[in-house]
Design a binder for these strands. Structure first.
Length: 289
DNA sequence: CGTTGAACCTGTTTGC
DNA sequence: TGCAAACAGGTTCAAC
Protein backbone atom coordinates (compact mmCIF):
# COMPACT_ATOMS: atom_id res chain seq x y z
CA UNK A 1 0.00 0.00 0.00
CA UNK A 2 2.20 2.77 1.14
CA UNK A 3 4.60 4.25 -1.35
CA UNK A 4 5.77 7.83 -1.48
CA UNK A 5 2.39 9.42 -2.34
CA UNK A 6 0.53 7.49 0.33
CA UNK A 7 3.12 8.21 3.00
CA UNK A 8 3.18 11.87 1.98
CA UNK A 9 -0.61 11.97 2.26
CA UNK A 10 -0.49 10.51 5.75
CA UNK A 11 2.32 12.83 6.83
CA UNK A 12 0.32 15.86 5.69
CA UNK A 13 -2.74 14.68 7.56
CA UNK A 14 -0.75 14.07 10.70
CA UNK A 15 0.81 17.50 10.56
CA UNK A 16 -2.62 19.03 10.86
CA UNK A 17 -3.77 16.57 13.51
CA UNK A 18 -0.90 16.00 15.91
CA UNK A 19 1.88 18.57 15.54
CA UNK A 20 2.15 20.61 18.73
CA UNK A 21 0.55 17.89 20.87
CA UNK A 22 2.35 16.28 23.76
CA UNK A 23 2.34 12.51 24.00
CA UNK A 24 1.17 11.54 27.46
CA UNK A 25 1.13 7.76 27.31
CA UNK A 26 1.55 4.70 25.12
CA UNK A 27 -0.20 1.34 24.91
CA UNK A 28 1.10 -1.55 22.85
CA UNK A 29 -0.41 -4.61 21.25
CA UNK A 30 2.08 -6.85 19.45
CA UNK A 31 5.55 -5.34 19.37
CA UNK A 32 7.62 -7.66 17.18
CA UNK A 33 7.88 -5.04 14.43
CA UNK A 34 9.42 -2.48 16.79
CA UNK A 35 13.20 -2.14 17.14
CA UNK A 36 12.99 -1.72 20.91
CA UNK A 37 9.50 -1.37 22.39
CA UNK A 38 10.86 -0.66 25.87
CA UNK A 39 12.80 2.31 24.52
CA UNK A 40 9.60 3.74 23.03
CA UNK A 41 7.71 3.23 26.26
CA UNK A 42 10.43 4.89 28.31
CA UNK A 43 11.34 7.76 26.03
CA UNK A 44 8.29 8.90 24.11
CA UNK A 45 5.80 9.91 26.82
CA UNK A 46 6.35 13.49 27.94
CA UNK A 47 7.66 14.68 24.60
CA UNK A 48 5.92 17.03 22.24
CA UNK A 49 5.49 16.30 18.53
CA UNK A 50 7.40 19.09 16.82
CA UNK A 51 6.86 18.01 13.27
CA UNK A 52 6.14 15.16 10.88
CA UNK A 53 8.55 14.50 8.04
CA UNK A 54 8.59 12.00 5.23
CA UNK A 55 11.81 10.48 4.04
CA UNK A 56 11.15 8.07 1.19
CA UNK A 57 8.61 5.67 2.62
CA UNK A 58 9.65 6.48 6.18
CA UNK A 59 7.91 8.93 8.42
CA UNK A 60 9.68 10.68 11.24
CA UNK A 61 7.77 12.24 14.10
CA UNK A 62 10.19 14.83 15.45
CA UNK A 63 9.98 14.87 19.21
CA UNK A 64 11.01 17.59 21.66
CA UNK A 65 13.35 16.92 24.55
CA UNK A 66 11.60 15.76 27.71
CA UNK A 67 10.91 18.58 30.20
CA UNK A 68 14.34 20.05 30.68
CA UNK A 69 16.58 17.09 30.06
CA UNK A 70 17.18 14.67 27.26
CA UNK A 71 17.77 15.81 23.72
CA UNK A 72 15.62 16.01 20.63
CA UNK A 73 14.79 12.67 19.08
CA UNK A 74 12.35 11.07 16.70
CA UNK A 75 9.95 8.23 16.22
CA UNK A 76 10.77 6.47 12.97
CA UNK A 77 7.80 4.76 11.35
CA UNK A 78 7.63 2.59 8.24
CA UNK A 79 4.21 1.30 7.19
CA UNK A 80 5.43 -1.82 5.43
CA UNK A 81 2.67 -3.28 3.28
CA UNK A 82 -0.38 -2.81 5.48
CA UNK A 83 0.53 -0.23 8.09
CA UNK A 84 -1.75 2.67 8.93
CA UNK A 85 -1.09 5.64 11.13
CA UNK A 86 -3.98 7.86 12.04
CA UNK A 87 -5.43 9.97 14.76
CA UNK A 88 -8.65 9.01 16.47
CA UNK A 89 -10.79 10.08 19.38
CA UNK A 90 -9.74 8.09 22.46
CA UNK A 91 -13.21 6.73 23.03
CA UNK A 92 -13.41 5.33 19.54
CA UNK A 93 -13.09 1.54 19.59
CA UNK A 94 -9.78 0.40 18.16
CA UNK A 95 -9.56 -1.41 14.87
CA UNK A 96 -8.29 -4.95 14.75
CA UNK A 97 -4.48 -5.20 14.57
CA UNK A 98 -3.89 -1.90 16.32
CA UNK A 99 -0.48 -2.37 17.91
CA UNK A 100 0.43 1.06 19.23
CA UNK A 101 -1.69 3.84 20.72
CA UNK A 102 -0.09 7.16 21.66
CA UNK A 103 -2.34 9.18 23.95
CA UNK A 104 -2.13 12.91 23.24
CA UNK A 105 -2.72 15.87 25.52
CA UNK A 106 -5.86 16.91 23.67
CA UNK A 107 -7.74 13.74 24.48
CA UNK A 108 -7.11 12.14 21.13
CA UNK A 109 -4.79 9.30 20.15
CA UNK A 110 -2.34 8.47 17.41
CA UNK A 111 -2.86 4.83 16.43
CA UNK A 112 -0.71 2.44 14.46
CA UNK A 113 -2.53 -0.49 12.86
CA UNK A 114 -0.79 -3.17 10.82
CA UNK A 115 -2.25 -6.64 10.13
CA UNK A 116 0.91 -8.11 8.63
CA UNK A 117 3.36 -6.25 10.83
CA UNK A 118 5.87 -5.72 8.02
CA UNK A 119 6.19 -2.16 9.24
CA UNK A 120 8.74 -0.77 11.59
CA UNK A 121 8.74 1.57 14.55
CA UNK A 122 11.72 2.86 16.49
CA UNK A 123 12.54 5.59 18.96
CA UNK A 124 15.85 7.11 17.92
CA UNK A 125 18.00 10.02 19.12
CA UNK A 126 18.92 12.56 16.43
CA UNK A 127 22.25 10.99 15.57
CA UNK A 128 20.83 7.49 15.24
CA UNK A 129 18.00 8.84 13.14
CA UNK A 130 20.39 10.48 10.72
CA UNK A 131 22.43 7.31 10.52
CA UNK A 132 19.33 5.29 9.79
CA UNK A 133 18.23 7.53 6.93
CA UNK A 134 21.59 8.28 5.35
CA UNK A 135 21.80 5.14 3.15
CA UNK A 136 18.62 6.13 1.32
CA UNK A 137 18.89 7.39 -2.23
CA UNK A 138 17.66 10.59 -3.84
CA UNK A 139 14.19 11.98 -3.36
CA UNK A 140 12.44 11.22 -6.67
CA UNK A 141 10.58 14.52 -6.58
CA UNK A 142 13.76 16.55 -6.10
CA UNK A 143 16.33 14.62 -8.09
CA UNK A 144 17.66 16.43 -11.16
CA UNK A 145 17.68 14.79 -14.59
CA UNK A 146 21.46 14.60 -14.52
CA UNK A 147 21.56 12.93 -11.14
CA UNK A 148 18.72 10.59 -12.10
CA UNK A 149 20.39 9.48 -15.33
CA UNK A 150 23.68 9.04 -13.52
CA UNK A 151 22.11 6.81 -10.89
CA UNK A 152 20.67 4.51 -13.54
CA UNK A 153 24.16 3.90 -14.85
CA UNK A 154 25.83 3.09 -11.57
CA UNK A 155 24.71 -0.50 -11.69
CA UNK A 156 23.91 -3.10 -14.27
CA UNK A 157 20.40 -3.92 -13.14
CA UNK A 158 16.93 -3.89 -14.64
CA UNK A 159 15.22 -0.54 -14.64
CA UNK A 160 12.40 -1.91 -12.50
CA UNK A 161 14.89 -3.11 -9.89
CA UNK A 162 16.63 0.26 -9.90
CA UNK A 163 13.40 2.17 -9.43
CA UNK A 164 12.45 -0.06 -6.50
CA UNK A 165 15.87 0.10 -4.87
CA UNK A 166 15.58 2.54 -1.98
CA UNK A 167 19.33 3.16 -2.10
CA UNK A 168 18.97 4.57 -5.61
CA UNK A 169 15.74 6.51 -5.14
CA UNK A 170 13.75 6.72 -1.97
CA UNK A 171 10.01 6.22 -2.02
CA UNK A 172 9.16 4.46 -5.29
CA UNK A 173 7.30 1.16 -4.94
CA UNK A 174 5.66 -1.36 -7.24
CA UNK A 175 2.65 0.70 -8.30
CA UNK A 176 4.47 3.89 -9.21
CA UNK A 177 7.39 2.07 -10.81
CA UNK A 178 4.98 0.36 -13.22
CA UNK A 179 2.94 3.50 -13.83
CA UNK A 180 6.06 5.52 -14.60
CA UNK A 181 7.49 2.89 -16.94
CA UNK A 182 4.18 2.68 -18.77
CA UNK A 183 4.05 6.44 -19.17
CA UNK A 184 7.65 6.58 -20.37
CA UNK A 185 7.09 3.55 -22.65
CA UNK A 186 9.93 1.55 -21.17
CA UNK A 187 9.88 -2.20 -20.61
CA UNK A 188 10.48 -3.05 -16.94
CA UNK A 189 13.17 -5.63 -17.74
CA UNK A 190 15.37 -3.22 -19.71
CA UNK A 191 18.76 -2.67 -18.18
CA UNK A 192 18.74 0.81 -16.68
CA UNK A 193 22.25 1.55 -17.85
CA UNK A 194 21.28 0.82 -21.45
CA UNK A 195 18.46 3.30 -21.68
CA UNK A 196 19.17 6.15 -24.05
CA UNK A 197 19.61 9.58 -22.54
CA UNK A 198 16.22 10.54 -23.99
CA UNK A 199 14.54 7.52 -22.48
CA UNK A 200 16.08 8.08 -19.08
CA UNK A 201 15.11 11.74 -19.18
CA UNK A 202 11.60 10.74 -20.24
CA UNK A 203 11.38 8.35 -17.31
CA UNK A 204 12.54 11.05 -14.93
CA UNK A 205 9.79 13.30 -16.19
CA UNK A 206 7.15 10.55 -16.12
CA UNK A 207 8.06 9.53 -12.59
CA UNK A 208 7.72 13.04 -11.25
CA UNK A 209 4.44 13.62 -13.08
CA UNK A 210 3.02 10.37 -11.77
CA UNK A 211 4.11 10.98 -8.19
CA UNK A 212 2.83 14.55 -8.17
CA UNK A 213 -0.47 13.46 -9.66
CA UNK A 214 -0.80 10.70 -7.10
CA UNK A 215 -0.10 13.04 -4.20
CA UNK A 216 -2.71 15.44 -5.54
CA UNK A 217 -5.28 12.64 -5.39
CA UNK A 218 -4.06 11.55 -1.96
CA UNK A 219 -2.53 8.28 -3.06
CA UNK A 220 -3.88 4.97 -4.32
CA UNK A 221 -6.30 2.86 -2.32
CA UNK A 222 -6.04 -0.68 -3.63
CA UNK A 223 -7.76 -2.45 -0.81
CA UNK A 224 -7.33 -0.69 2.46
CA UNK A 225 -5.21 2.43 2.30
CA UNK A 226 -6.66 5.37 4.18
CA UNK A 227 -5.02 8.64 5.12
CA UNK A 228 -4.51 10.06 8.60
CA UNK A 229 -8.19 10.95 8.79
CA UNK A 230 -9.41 7.60 7.50
CA UNK A 231 -10.16 8.84 3.99
CA UNK A 232 -9.15 6.65 1.02
CA UNK A 233 -7.09 7.99 -1.89
CA UNK A 234 -8.34 8.30 -5.46
CA UNK A 235 -5.29 7.69 -7.61
CA UNK A 236 -6.14 4.01 -8.22
CA UNK A 237 -8.67 5.28 -10.77
CA UNK A 238 -5.81 6.74 -12.77
CA UNK A 239 -3.74 3.55 -12.92
CA UNK A 240 -2.84 2.68 -16.48
CA UNK A 241 -0.77 -0.45 -15.93
CA UNK A 242 -0.65 -1.60 -12.32
CA UNK A 243 -3.29 -4.21 -11.57
CA UNK A 244 -4.72 -4.04 -15.09
CA UNK A 245 -3.69 -7.40 -16.51
CA UNK A 246 -5.81 -8.29 -19.55
CA UNK A 247 -7.35 -4.84 -19.78
CA UNK A 248 -6.70 -2.63 -22.81
CA UNK A 249 -3.76 -0.24 -22.78
CA UNK A 250 -5.11 3.31 -22.54
CA UNK A 251 -2.82 4.34 -25.43
CA UNK A 252 -3.03 1.52 -27.94
CA UNK A 253 -5.67 -0.95 -26.76
CA UNK A 254 -3.28 -3.88 -26.49
CA UNK A 255 -3.93 -6.04 -23.46
CA UNK A 256 -1.80 -5.24 -20.46
CA UNK A 257 0.41 -8.14 -19.42
CA UNK A 258 1.84 -9.21 -16.11
CA UNK A 259 5.29 -10.70 -15.74
CA UNK A 260 7.75 -11.11 -12.90
CA UNK A 261 10.65 -8.66 -12.84
CA UNK A 262 12.92 -8.14 -9.86
CA UNK A 263 10.75 -10.62 -8.03
CA UNK A 264 7.69 -8.40 -8.28
CA UNK A 265 4.56 -8.52 -10.40
CA UNK A 266 5.12 -6.08 -13.22
CA UNK A 267 2.34 -4.80 -15.44
CA UNK A 268 3.12 -3.34 -18.82
CA UNK A 269 1.86 -2.87 -22.37
CA UNK A 270 3.72 -5.31 -24.64
CA UNK A 271 3.26 -2.95 -27.58
CA UNK A 272 4.07 0.43 -26.06
CA UNK A 273 6.81 -0.95 -23.86
CA UNK A 274 8.96 -3.04 -26.14
CA UNK A 275 10.63 -6.19 -24.94
CA UNK A 276 14.38 -5.69 -24.63
CA UNK A 277 15.91 -6.98 -27.85
CA UNK A 278 19.38 -7.97 -26.81
CA UNK A 279 19.97 -11.31 -25.15
CA UNK A 280 21.52 -9.77 -22.11
CA UNK A 281 18.27 -8.00 -21.39
CA UNK A 282 16.04 -11.01 -21.95
CA UNK A 283 15.20 -13.16 -19.00
CA UNK A 284 15.66 -16.86 -19.25
CA UNK A 285 12.64 -18.99 -18.46
CA UNK A 286 10.23 -16.14 -18.88
CA UNK A 287 6.91 -16.90 -20.47
CA UNK A 288 6.72 -15.57 -24.03
CA UNK A 289 5.09 -12.27 -24.88
C1' DC B 1 27.88 -7.66 -8.33
C1' DG B 2 23.08 -9.07 -9.68
C1' DT B 3 19.26 -12.20 -9.40
C1' DT B 4 16.28 -15.41 -7.23
C1' DG B 5 13.62 -17.32 -3.74
C1' DA B 6 12.38 -17.56 0.82
C1' DA B 7 11.13 -15.42 4.98
C1' DC B 8 8.58 -12.23 7.89
C1' DC B 9 2.57 -12.32 8.86
C1' DT B 10 -2.35 -11.95 7.96
C1' DG B 11 -6.16 -11.35 4.95
C1' DT B 12 -8.35 -11.75 0.54
C1' DT B 13 -8.94 -13.66 -3.91
C1' DT B 14 -8.65 -17.42 -7.13
C1' DG B 15 -8.96 -22.13 -8.62
C1' DC B 16 -10.18 -26.82 -8.53
C1' DT C 1 -19.93 -24.75 -0.96
C1' DG C 2 -15.21 -25.92 0.75
C1' DC C 3 -10.61 -25.96 1.09
C1' DA C 4 -6.04 -24.98 -0.50
C1' DA C 5 -3.09 -22.35 -3.12
C1' DA C 6 -1.79 -18.00 -4.80
C1' DC C 7 -1.17 -13.33 -4.11
C1' DA C 8 -0.73 -8.62 -1.87
C1' DG C 9 1.44 -1.60 -1.63
C1' DG C 10 7.87 -3.82 1.47
C1' DT C 11 12.41 -5.19 3.05
C1' DT C 12 16.13 -8.35 4.07
C1' DC C 13 19.07 -12.18 3.66
C1' DA C 14 21.13 -16.53 2.12
C1' DA C 15 22.45 -18.96 -1.86
C1' DC C 16 23.82 -19.21 -6.68
Amino acid sequence: MPELPEVETIARGLRAAVVGRRIVGVTFGKTDFMDDPAAIEENVPGRRIKGVERYGKFMVLRLSETNGHGSAAGLLVHLGMTGRLRSAASERPQEKHTHARFRLDDGRELRYTDPRRFGRMAFLPEAALAKELSPLGADPLEVTVEDFCGRLRLRRARIKALLLDQHVLRGVGNIYADESLWRAKIHPARLGARLSRAQAAGLHRALQKILRGAIALRGSSISDFVDADGRPGDYQRRHRAYGREGKPCARCGTRIRKILVAGRSSYFCPRCQRTPRSRSETRRGKRGV
